[in-house]
């Protein structure tokens, strides 16, 4: 199955969730199919699970969605044990596993060889970890994840992307400020410094 079809399948479920998105083509495709203020792009490869978990703990009443990738998860595997030890019921993790570092030319990642991210997550205590391999299974799993309580961890086995990526600006500093202002507005909190003259 293709990542773009999985992302399109998520769109009908998106309302006011905060969505943390990994780097690379996943970010470009999500920005294409679901542009909105509540998207936060590229917290740095490897950092997405910790950032999403910290956000979920800070806002336990808000659904937090993480769209991550195999290369990013593999970069900071200890994040899985933290996720397993301190789960957040409002956190919904999707890992799009194309078994490659697509952005650098498609070199295989360890999941193309022997590594199994869902199995590692289960071993780390993420009991809900599962792998889906076709679009219908993804749609069913995603629907369950986004409409029911409880942390979820869905690894979607996808093909390498085809054709040119969407030309979308997921600019870092501007995107961060947009996301932070959205959280401030919707949560009635102050995050950025205020100076009083």
């Amino acid at each position: 199955m293709e990542r773009i079809d999985c992302l399109k399948a998520l769109v009908p479920h998106i309302k006011d969730q905060l969505v943390i998105v990994t780097l690379g083509r996943t970010a470009l495709e999500w920005a294409e199919v679901c542009p909105r203020e509540g998207n936060m792009f590229n917290s740095g490869m490897g950092n997405h699970i910790p950032v999403a978990l910290g956000l979920a703990k800070a806002l336990p009443h808000r659904q937090i969605i993480l769209l991550d990738s195999d290369g990013s998860v593999l970069m900071l595997l200890p994040a899985l044990t933290t996720l397993g030890s301190f789960p957040a019921p409002n956190l919904k993790v999707f890992v799009f596993d194309n078994e490659a570092y697509e952005g650098t030319g498609g070199q295989p990642s360890d999941t193309a060889r022997v590594a199994d991210i869902a199995a590692m997550a289960k071993g780390a205590g993420v009991e809900e970890a599962m792998t889906v391999r076709d679009l219908n299974s993804f749609k069913a799993a995603a629907r369950d994840a986004l409409t029911k309580d409880g942390m979820t961890f869905i690894v979607a086995k996808i093909e390498l992307s085809k054709g040119r990526p969407p030309r979308k600006d997921v600019g870092h500093k501007e995107g961060l400020l947009q996301f932070v202002r959205y959280v401030e507005k919707t949560e009635n909190v102050t995050i950025l410094h205020k100076e009083h003259n």
Partner: peptide
């Protein structure tokens, strides 16, 4: 990363 995520949520 956790602390940065918490900051994003206003904590």
């Amino acid at each position: 990363g956790l602390c940065c995520g918490a900051w994003l949520g206003g904590m």
